[in-house]
């Protein structure tokens, strides 16, 4: 027994936390407690990730396995979500398609955040002509309707997964740079950055050690909110035939092939559409929840 045993447990815990930053695990626990919808969304995303990883184990079929005797079959015990025009199992293609959607959600979003954060910090911290040049460039990128810009880039680069990554990175970096720049402008004037500068810390180190870490909460929120828009853009590109090509599976591509059989085999496009909507909703809820937990000031914006 310590001398502190008269204090209620809660207070003891609070006291021990003074001066300690909230770790990722604490943030997650707070999120789970405060926002049930965000927690459910997190679990749904986890299930999609598991499905994507375990795809070969979960289904007896291959994603490109044709079975011409069983074309356009309605959902049944053998084919839980039916088959497509080549007799391919739709559930199997959905599982493999979730790989594309998750990769397309995460990879270009990470790349565009890295690029955007780098350029945003440079613009905000250095100011002057660097700022002017980078921000005019961002203005130009942001002026394009994002779908059309993605289409032109895909046209120039050609189809394929890697090129989708590149296209989405190019489409999305500008908005990240804008946000990071405005945070940097605020932080640049703060006392601790002033202090660091006055004891002779180099500009590069100030940006990396003092400014970037303070941008992390908004970057995390932006990350979860940019993933669904990347997923939607990929599915739209593949829907137009500018993204993933058959026999590879992508939800957008599946919706597009299903469109020709909308009245005879509606399950073909319904299942992938529903999956796109579910994952987009889940990421949006998680992003909203994270924003409330990480940054109460952004709550109403």
């Amino acid at each position: 027994m310590t001398t502190n045993n008269e204090l209620p447990n809660e207070e003891l815990k609070l006291l021990s936390q003074i001066g300690e930053a909230e770790g990722p695990w604490d943030i997650f626990r707070r999120l789970a407690r405060e926002n049930k919808l965000a927690l459910i969304s997190f679990i749904i995303i986890l299930l999609f990730v598991l499905a994507a990883i375990l795809a070969p184990v979960l289904t007896p079929y291959r994603f490109d396995e044709m079975d011409l005797a069983n074309r356009l079959k309605a959902p049944s015990a053998e084919h839980l979500l039916g088959t497509d025009e080549g007799g391919r199992d739709i559930l199997t293609r959905m599982l493999y398609g979730s790989r594309v959607s998750l990769l397309v959600g995460v990879v270009p979003t990470v790349l565009s955040m890295l690029l955007g954060a780098l350029l945003g910090i440079l613009a905000g911290y250095l100011g002057g002509w660097v700022d002017a040049l980078l921000m005019r460039l961002a203005d130009i990128m942001l002026a394009f309707p994002s779908m059309l810009l993605a289409m032109v880039i895909m046209y120039t680069l050609g189809d394929g997964l890697i090129n989708i990554f590149l296209a989405l990175t190019l489409v999305n970096w500008a908005s990240v740079a804008r946000i990071v720049r405005s945070e940097t402008l605020k932080l640049r004037e703060s006392e601790y950055v002033e202090a660091a500068r006055s004891i002779g810390v180099r500009a590069f180190r100030v940006m990396l050690r003092h400014i970037l870490p303070n941008c992390v909460p908004s970057l995390i929120v932006l990350f979860t909110l940019n993933i669904p828009s990347a997923i939607l853009t990929e599915s739209s590109l593949s829907f137009l035939g500018l993204g993933i090509q058959a026999p590879d599976a992508s939800w957008g591509l599946m919706v597009n092939t299903g469109r020709q059989f909308l009245y005879t085999a509606p399950w073909m496009s319904l299942a992938p559409s529903a999956a796109i909507m579910a994952i987009v909703l889940a990421f949006n809820f998680l992003g909203d929840g994270l924003r409330d937990v990480l940054d109460p000031y952004m709550k109403n914006s």
């Binding site: 599915s235 909308l262 559409s273 909703l281 949006n284």
Partner: peptide
């Protein structure tokens, strides 16, 4: 409205076609 915001346009379009036209 939340459904409205997160539904891809092609999904809305095809659902409408299926229900109201077909």
């Amino acid at each position: 409205s939340l459904l409205g915001v997160s539904m891809p346009v092609f999904m809305t379009a095809m659902l409408l076609q299926y229900v109201f036209a077909y």
